[in-house]
Amino acid sequence: MIRVEHLTKVYGKKIILDDVGFTIDRGTVLAIIGPSGAGKSTLLRCINGLEKFNSGRIFINGEELTKNNVVEIRKKIGFVFQQFNLFPHMSVLENIVLPQVVVKKIKREKAEDIAYNILSRIGLIDKVDSYPSELSGGEQQRVAIARALALDPEIMLFDEPTSSLDPEMTREVLDLIRKLTTRKITMIIVSHEMGFIYEISNYVMFMDEGRVVEFAPTKTFFLSPKEERTKRFLGKVINISTR
């Protein structure tokens, strides 16, 4: 479960997040959409404590996120970045094994088993000894997802996971995320892939200028949006569907 209450973040004079609030239950897939600069990424980074905020509260599975428990809470949350952020000096295997050994104190052999297992499931077993620079963008992102999954998170946050990929690679990454939705992991996905969001999410939240404009179940959101601002945005990003 994730609950966000009155979250506000100010940077200088600019308001990045303006009284943002929502609640989602365990196993829910929430998609966040909106124009760039709407505060979507910042909101996501606040939820796992990568970004400080000025006021408001965040609850993860009923526990309030504070300075003292942020490292503990992060262990339950997997985070996938737009730019993958793999560790370039480590092989694929090492990228997945190290966090398990360091964070969860899992024995090396067991961590390697888990890594091999995940890599074979996502079809990257032949890349186990490769270095990130030797992989395509799509492969790097899948390894980044594998790295997060190896820690067995209850929550996964995706920050525009396909925005820096070309269409072909986008598909392989989206296919992988789609598979995860069957595993009852709570997910928040910031994305511009409307078709994908329509297909896999339970709720959609539309943000603009740091505010939540509309929050609704996915079908309702796309088929009968309430707010004018939402309609205008959807009109721009979706050219054929819903007519």
Binding site: R74, K75, N85, A148
Partner: peptide, 10 residues
Amino acid sequence: EQFDAGRALG
């Protein structure tokens, strides 16, 4: 971002 990645992994 390398710090972020490490922190995000706990």
